[in-house]
């Protein structure tokens, strides 16, 4: 087993440091996007939940609540999307 690791380590010296950096960048991008999705996930949950409460309380103003809900989702979602863009940026620079 140790032999195997040694072999693997010796073969990994063939990989250029830029490749390692790239791999680290991919790891960072993945973790970063995962972290960026947490907050908007919770936020959209709150927005939609409250919108549904509002619609259930006042079904006659459901149209306004729905429009406002989509707006709120759009603003909240922007954060996740910026995370997504940063993810792509990290992968490609």
């Amino acid at each position: 087993m140790l032999d195997l690791f040694a072999q693997a380590a010796s073969s990994s010296t063939a990989v250029a440091p830029t490749e390692i950096l790239k791999g680290l960048g991919a790891v960072g991008a993945g973790i970063g996007y995962g972290a960026a999705a947490i907050g908007p996930g919770i936020g959209i949950g709150i927005v939609v939940g409250n919108a549904i409460t509002a619609m259930a309380r006042q079904p006659e103003s459901a149209g306004v609540a729905r429009t406002t809900m989509f707006l709120g989702i759009a603003f909240t979602e922007a954060l996740a999307l910026i995370g997504f863009v940063v993810f792509i940026l990290l992968k490609y620079t």
């Binding site: 032999d3 195997l4 072999q7 693997a8 073969s11 990994s12 063939a14 990989v15």
Partner: peptide
């Protein structure tokens, strides 16, 4: 087996490179 593994890993590394 170690020789085989070494050859395998080397070949994989070459392919990857």
């Amino acid at each position: 087996t170690s020789a085989l593994l070494a050859a395998g890993s080397r070949a994989a590394a070459a392919l990857y490179a």
